[in-house]
């Protein structure tokens, strides 16, 4: 059976090579990928959406449904991880010397706790506020410079994990208010649905944005609300995933 896997890899490699050989070389400005809808977005994106960062414009306006369901995907991942039985809930097996409960306790063989070096702890705590400011900036300026909701969520989530690793999960968990946790982790899908509904009322299409030049401020407010929802919801989901996997 061992040769079967290798044969699969060889066949996949040959097929991909054949496919890639037909593509135009990368970097050419007249390749077909650049001449259709991408060129249209580049040409009219700023006028149509008011956002200078066209990646954010494509994510939130042109491909809004895609992003909505993506937020639902990461929320479903959190639901799946939390729904799995915790720690020592394993069913007992007959004829096993070791009770299954012992496999996951802290005394198991792979569980040596290594204390964090004071240098690492100091550097993480020193840089923490600056990382938080960077995440906030990439959220607030996300439609005119590199950044946006997802990047901000990723940076906030990574910062939470770094703090939890050096300070212990109890201290880091206080950053997310316990009572609001249930709502915060669903904030991405909720804010998307809310703004989508607002757009429905205003323009007659779900996730529609008012296009008139006079509604510039309203459109900006809707985009910022969705971005904040994605950033806070995504960051809380990443933090909860870490907590569920760790404890």
């Amino acid at each position: 059976m061992r040769w079967l896997g290798l044969a699969l890899v060889v066949v996949a490699a040959a097929t991909l090579m054949l496919g890639v050989a037909d593509l135009p070389p990368h970097g050419a400005h007249d390749a077909p990928v650049h001449t259709h809808v991408g060129a249209r977005y580049l040409e009219r994106g700023v006028a149509e959406t008011g956002m200078r960062n066209l990646v954010t414009a494509v994510l939130l306006v042109y491909r809004g449904f895609d992003t909505f369901l993506e937020v639902v995907v990461i929320f479903s991942a959190l639901v799946a991880v939390v729904a799995l039985p915790r720690g020592r809930a394993a069913r007992s097996r007959d004829g096993d010397d070791q009770p299954p409960a012992a496999l996951l306790t802290r005394e198991g063989p792979a569980q040596e706790r290594i204390s964090v070096s004071p240098v690492v702890a100091f550097v993480v705590q020193l840089l923490g506020p600056f990382i938080a400011v960077f995440a906030l900036a990439s959220l607030y300026r996300g439609h005119v410079s590199p950044g946006g909701g997802f990047q901000s969520a990723a940076i906030f989530g990574a910062l939470f994990i770094a703090l939890a690793l050096v300070q212990g999960r109890e201290r880091a968990a206080r950053l997310v208010p316990r009572g609001a946790r249930v709502w915060l982790q669903a904030l991405g899908p909720l804010s998307f649905a809310l703004i989508g509904g607002v757009g429905w009322v205003l323009t007659g299409a779900f996730l529609g944005y008012p296009a008139e030049a006079a509604a510039y401020a309203l459109r900006e407010a809707m985009v910022v609300a969705v971005e904040i929802g994605i950033a806070v919801g995504g960051a809380v989901i990443l933090a909860q995933l870490f907590m569920a996997m760790e404890g």
């Binding site: 960062n53 990047q151 990723a154 989530g157 990574a158």
Partner: peptide
């Protein structure tokens, strides 16, 4: 944009 997300999520 993609590089920021990958550095924080993919590597971190």
């Amino acid at each position: 944009d993609v590089a920021i997300a990958e550095a924080a999520v993919g590597a971190g």
